[in-house]
Every structure is written in C-alpha cells, then in structure tokens.
Amino acid sequence: MSTELELERPAQPPSFQGISTGRKAKNLAATVMVSLCFVVAVIPLVWVLWTVASRGMESLLRADWWSHSLSGVRANEDLGGAYHAIYGTIAQGLVTAVIAVPIGILVGIYLVEYGAGTRFARVTTFTVDILTGVPSIVAALFVYSVWISIFGFSRSAFANCLALLLLMIPMVVRSTEEMLRVVPNELREASYALGIPKWKTIVKVVIPTALSGIVTGVMLGVARIMGETAPALILMAYSARINMDIFEGSMANLPLLMVKEFTNPEAAGFNRTWGAALTLILIIMLFNLAATLVSRLSAVKTK
C-alpha cells in the first residue's frame, strides 16, 4: 500500500470516489419524472376549476340566483335561480350530519375507550372500513329496498339523507377515533384519580379535548356528502320549486339540479348546470375552509 505516497501527494480535486454518470442520470431522470407526476395531477385540477369558474360565473352574478327558484321558469329563459337547490343541499347535509354525528362519535368512543383490543372492536373497525368503501349507489339501493320497497315510504329528501348517513357515519367514526387516540392517557388517569367515573371522564375530559378535531372531521364529512349525486337520483324526485319539508314531496339539491339541466340544450340550461356546479364547489370550499379554521383556532388554544 502506498500510504506514504498518498500522504505526500498534493491534493487533487477528484479525491472522492466519483459516482458513475449512469447513476447520476438515473437520479436526474427520477427527479424529473417525479416532479412531472405532480404537474400531471395539477393540470386536471386547474382545468376543472377553471372550466367551472368561467362557465358558472355568469349565473352566480345574477342576484336572482341566490334568492329565487326555477319554479315557472322556461327552459330557455335565463331567469330564476338555484335557491331551492342550495336550500336542499344544505338542509340535507345538516339533517344527515345531525343523525350521523352522535352515532359516529359513539362508535368512535366505543372503539377507543371501551372496546380497545377486544374481538368485537376489531370486527367493528373492519366493518367501518368496509362501510367507508361502500359505493354510494349501493347505499342508495339499500335504502331503496328497505325504506321504500319494504316500509313503503315514498321517495323523499329524507330517504336521500338516510343513504348519505351510511356514507357519513364511517367518516365521523374515523375522525373521532383518530382524535380520541391523540388524547394523552395522563388526562384520563388524572380524572380517574379524582374518582370520576369512566363515562363522566369521557364526556367531560376526553371529548372536549378532542372536540375540535372531531368538528373538523364532521365538516369535511358534510362537505363530502353534499356533492353526492347517486343516492339523490334513486331516492328523490327533483322539484324546481322551493320545498322546505325534508320528509314530504319532491325537493332539489345542487347535484340533482345539474343532472336535470345538463340535458337542457338551451344556453340557459348550460348556465344553470355550470352555475350549480360553481355554487356547489363554493359551498364545499366554505365547509372545508371552516374545518381548517376550526382546527387552526383550537390548535392555538391548547398551547
């Protein structure tokens, strides 16, 4: 070995064992490909949002859009608005949430606080996973076969809510579960140490700590189900008129309005379809934004 030689040799720049050009090229190629993938995903997003915004803006700028229904408006008239559908979308979203939230939270509590590790909890977790994957059309058919075929109720917005319920419950369970798991055990133990029974500990200590996370999850869930269309196609009848009653008669929501109007060949139909699309996106974004705000604000509070 020529150590002496190496020591005396003046320093030369290629003192490091270089990496082959092949490896460098591969590394560069990977970097380019991976970045391209991201760009590829952004293209349709921007394209879709641009399409919706540019085509839907016209309708949204008419004041009537927010305050009137399409009752009595002819197919070719750029009159009336989406009030009936906006009301329907929000009302159905809220009714669904009101039922889904307690059930979902209770299941989440069971999984984290009571069932942890038991066989039944594992079955429940698996079921929630499967429920997450149930296609909305299957949920709709299930509600159809029970609520309408067997119980003999007629199609209504409430039937739609029942199907949306099936889609929303697993989302609430998931976010509850996740948030409850984050609550430190010391909090629970501190409460037990004061002699407070378990259920009271959960209600007074655990849930409030996890609440903001749960609320965030619920809002994201509501945003998701408000865009659902398939159940409405099967379980509701569209009405161009304002109907405030969830349980009786035909009712609209934004997706259903779009389905009705996209076959309308008039310019007004085009405007209504894309106007409804833009409105729907705005409402969903509003809920998403609110969810982010809730999580941000309360995150600061805990510190």
């Binding site: 190496e6 020591l7 040799r9 003046p10 320093a11 030369q12 720049p13 003192s15 490091f16």
Partner: peptide
C-alpha cells in the same frame, strides 16, 4: 473540511 487536502464543501 479537507480530506487529504480536498475540500468536501468545494
């Protein structure tokens, strides 16, 4: 940082 005189941050 020199490795046998060659700067690794060169």
């Amino acid at each position: 940082v020199l490795l046998d005189g060659a700067d690794i941050y060169g």
